[in-house]
Simulated scan of single mutants.
Amino acid sequence: MKADPAVQRRLLDLATVDAELARVTHRRRTLPEIAEITEAEQQVRAKQDALVAVETMLTDLDRDVKRQETEIDQVRARGERDRKLLQSGSVGAKQLTDLEHELATIQRRQGILEDDLLELMERREAVDADASFARVELDKARATLKDAAGRRDQALADLEATESRRTADRSTMAKGFPDDLLKAYDRQREQRGIGAAPFQSRRCGACRIELDSGAVSKLKEAAADEIVRCDECGAILVRIAEPRA
């Protein structure tokens, strides 16, 4: 296969564009924000679970407090009824004794219930503080996730703009190559990642291997318009003139 040396040199410009497009593809897959988002999402889920757990505990305590308050109200009402009977003077001696005993029992029961209620209220206050803390932590986790997602979206938009611009450049540049040369270049690029590279100072610019004397002599003897390849990696080699001493 033959091509004008100037056309061959333009392959290096095309390779530069393709390298940038490859970097865009690689960066899109490996954005650090992607890992940050994964970690942030896990944190949000963990914080949500923690909040649900503490809010469930708070709901249970609210129910217990309400039940305790209801029982205390019932005990107070019963005690109030007994006191009214005692004050009415309408009961006999035996019933009076029974009422006094029952009232004393009710008062002790009311004291126990009120102590239990106080303990429940203290526990609820502590759990309510835990719930407030859990909400703050969840808000922080969500903010971290939002920030990472915003930076990811901006990075992706930048990459998209670069890719769009360089893809258009490539399309324009590709029109300047013979079909057979472009196909050979693209096939090599798809197989090995680099389609064409400079050959200078005995070294292939694609695989970075220094060629042996035989390969170097063969390349130097090839006509300037001859398409030559690296024996090691197969890349099309664009011969660059050695600087004069």
Rank of each mutant, 00 (worst) to 15 (best):
G79D: 15
R123M: 05
D73A: 15
E71D: 11
R27V: 12
E137Q: 12
Q87D: 13
A15S: 05
L219P: 04
L14R: 13
S171R: 11
D73E: 15
I106D: 15
E80D: 12
I34M: 04
D186C: 05
L113V: 07
L237C: 01
V54Q: 05
Q95M: 12
L99M: 03
R29M: 04
A215G: 06
M57C: 09
I72P: 00
R208E: 14
R81H: 13
R27L: 08
D13N: 10
L145Q: 05
Q43G: 13
L211W: 01
R27E: 14
E125K: 14
D49P: 03
V91T: 07
T56G: 13
D147I: 07
Y185F: 12
E41G: 03
D73F: 11
A148V: 04
K94A: 14
R45E: 05
C204E: 05
I240M: 08
R83Q: 12
A22C: 07
L31I: 04
R23Y: 02
A197M: 04
R67H: 14
D116H: 12
D158I: 08
R108E: 05
T30I: 06
F199V: 13
R208M: 10
A35V: 06
D4L: 03
D98T: 09
T16M: 10
F177R: 07
A104D: 14
D98M: 11
G176V: 07
D116Y: 08
A155P: 05
S171C: 02
A129G: 06
S213M: 04
E242N: 09
R67C: 03
Q191K: 10
Q68C: 09
E190G: 10
E190T: 09
Q48F: 08
V54H: 07
R28T: 07
I194M: 00
R9I: 11
D158E: 12
E210N: 11
E232N: 10
K84S: 13
K183G: 03
R123E: 06
R244T: 09
D147H: 08
T162S: 15
A184D: 10
K175F: 06
E102D: 10
I236M: 08
V44P: 01
F199N: 06
R23C: 06
L120N: 01
D153A: 11
M57V: 12
Q154D: 13
R239P: 02
E163R: 02
Q107R: 08
I106R: 06
A77K: 06
R63D: 14
A148K: 05
C233V: 12
T172Q: 15
H101K: 09
G195F: 00
R165A: 14
V127F: 00
L145H: 04
